[in-house]
């Protein structure tokens, strides 16, 4: 077993550089503002960062599977919105404004099922009807942005829900969903890099003809990954809601770009589930750092800090050039004859 396919040396270096830069940044900031680092990095901070990273991680893992197999699902944001709303709606249907913990778990399950079904239809459009992946993905975002608040308005008379229930935290104040996500990331890594199915996913995105001539149905592989990506994004939305405890449908909804950040996360993590999770954690921590800065009185715009992931991806794509987009992303596969 080699380490090369886990994290390439270059990738390790990149992660190292990023962490190094952040460390230096932190040190400089604490120097400038004369803040004790231990006041910034508290246990609450770590807990909240992990919670913040979880929905992004889930969507990112799903998205990278789809893209690895040659289908760019940029509808992650839309499916997250659907997942979040479905969870809230189900909770409310089961237990009104005070659902039980059992209701919460059932609601999450329902959200995953619903987003799986919707993604299945989306996958048919993309694969069977060769829909334009970019435009159809944007459409999913629009549809989510429209119908979720619409449905919320129907149910609650407002685009946002009243306070429902958030999931109970376990020991150390940590959400069980965080642990579940860690397990899922591990499983996703094993499946992608250690099972035959994972080999097929990789081959489908790089050289579908090679997979086809090896006797594996390329479209079936892609259906599976696309549906998985939607299910994971829906799950991510559900987790977001289960942590927050209420649905917000105003503006860009409570999902607020996390689906896009998920894409950034897996690009940054070079299509590796563990890398994507690490990137998501980095972005989650960045987000939470803003809150910490405020509490200790450092004035840095949260908005600017939150742009760092996007800028980082541009740099990685253009200059560093190490993120390798699968060769045939976006192309429907046509068998010969």
């Amino acid at each position: 077993m080699s380490v090369t396919d886990v994290l390439t040396v270059a990738r390790l270096r990149l992660v190292g550089i990023t962490i190094g830069v952040l460390a230096v940044l932190g040190a400089v900031l604490s120097g400038i503002f004369d803040v004790d680092l231990s006041r910034l990095i508290t246990r609450g901070f770590v807990t909240r960062s992990l919670e913040m990273a979880t929905p992004i991680t889930l969507a990112a893992v799903g998205g990278l599977y789809a893209e690895k197999s040659g289908v760019f699902n940029i509808g992650l944001e839309g499916f997250m919105i659907v997942g979040a709303f479905t969870t809230a709606g189900t909770m409310f249907a089961l237990g009104g404004t005070s659902p039980t913990q059992g209701d919460v778990w059932v609601a999450i399950l329902v959200a995953v099922v619903v987003s799986t079904l919707l993604t299945a239809a989306f996958a048919v459009l993309l694969i069977r009807y060769k829909a334009d992946q970019i435009v159809a993905g944007l459409a999913v975002w629009f549809v989510g942005l429209g119908f979720a608040p619409f449905a919320a308005a129907l149910v609650w008379g407002s685009r946002s829900s009243p306070g429902l229930t958030s999931i109970d935290r376990l020991a150390f104040g940590q959400s069980p969903l965080v642990f579940l996500t860690v397990v899922l990331v591990g499983v996703a890594w094993v499946v992608l890099f250690r099972t035959r199915y994972g080999y097929w996913v990789q081959a489908a995105g790089e050289n579908p003809e090679a997979l086809d001539t090896a006797g594996v149905d390329v479209d079936r592989v892609r259906y599976a990954t696309v549906i998985f990506s939607g299910a994971m994004a829906g799950f991510g939305g559900a987790v977001l809601l289960a942590h927050a405890g209420n649905f917000v449908g105003t503006g860009s909804t409570m999902v607020d770009g996390r689906g896009w950040i998920a894409i950034v996360a897996y690009l940054f993590g070079n299509y590796n589930p563990v890398g994507a999770a690490a990137a998501a954690l980095l972005f989650g921590a960045l987000d939470m750092l803003n809150v910490q800065f405020q509490t200790v009185g450092i004035e840095i715009s949260a908005r600017l800090v939150n742009l760092l992931p996007y800028v980082a991806v541009l740099v990685v794509l253009t200059v560093y050039g190490k993120t390798r987009i699968p060769a045939v992303v976006g192309e429907p596969y046509e068998t010969e004859e």
Binding site: A136, V143, L145, G146, F150
Partner: peptide, 25 residues
Amino acid sequence: VPVQLIDGIVGLVVLFVAAPELFRM
């Protein structure tokens, strides 16, 4: 009628426009 329904309709227009093959078939 909640106005977001119209946003949803716009989304659907976009979705269908992306898949001309659907209508061809």
